[in-house]
């Protein structure tokens, strides 16, 4: 059984609603209390921990607005049972850049016009960081294949593709 799973007997115990539990979010331990234990990671991040960066738009994993990383893997936070990831490292868009100090992906999104209403943007930022970490020089079809799970209703995606290409080029030219 997992360490954090509180057990009164060796098998039957587990995390119960009244217990509260701890998540590791953006490098810090965060206590979750008052949560209905069936809550998704998205709802816990937003309504229990006040991290509003991940957005909810479909509750079905169809839109990617709630993209976060769990142990370095991009997932839809709405499809993660929060109480099941107590031993994982969770990173949200808030971990990328500092207030007023944009990450290179965030900067390119703003400059390239990839942000309109901005509701899908945080999920895209998380996904694009992951894409470029795994694939520093993606072709356009790689970008499309990597971002099919992030719906945008404003831009028609053209400026988003442009922004990803711009970041890839800058990183290449930056030589790092």
């Amino acid at each position: 059984m997992s360490e954090l799973t509180r057990t009164d007997d060796s098998i039957g115990g587990g995390i119960e609603a009244a217990d509260g539990y701890r998540l590791h979010v953006n490098g810090a331990a965060r206590e979750v209390t008052g949560s209905w234990i069936g809550e998704s990671l998205l709802d816990v991040l937003r309504d229990r921990l006040g991290l509003y960066g991940a957005k909810g738009a479909c509750e079905q994993g169809e839109c990617g607005s709630c993209s976060v990383t769990v142990d370095g893997t991009v997932v839809c936070a709405c499809l993660v049972l929060a109480a099941s990831v107590t031993e994982s490292e969770i990173a949200t868009v808030e971990s990328l850049g500092e207030p007023g100090q944009l990450s290179d992906v965030q900067q390119a999104f703003v400059e390239c016009g990839a942000v309109q209403c901005g509701f899908c943007t945080p999920g895209l930022i998380v996904t694009v960081h992951d894409l470029l970490d795994q694939m520093p020089d993606p072709a356009e079809h790689d970008i499309r294949a990597s971002l099919v799970g992030n719906l945008c209703r404003c831009t028609g995606y053209g400026r988003i593709i442009e922004a990803v290409l711009v970041v890839a080029r800058r990183r290449r030219e930056g030589g790092s």
């Binding site: 006040g50 957005k55 965030q106 901005g118 945080p122 930022i125």
Partner: peptide, 22 residues
Amino acid sequence: SAPRPDGGPKAQGRFAFSSDLF
């Protein structure tokens, strides 16, 4: 081709949408 003044906060998830209010 001016960039949006709210673009940075939106890209960082720090822009308050109506669903983010409390």
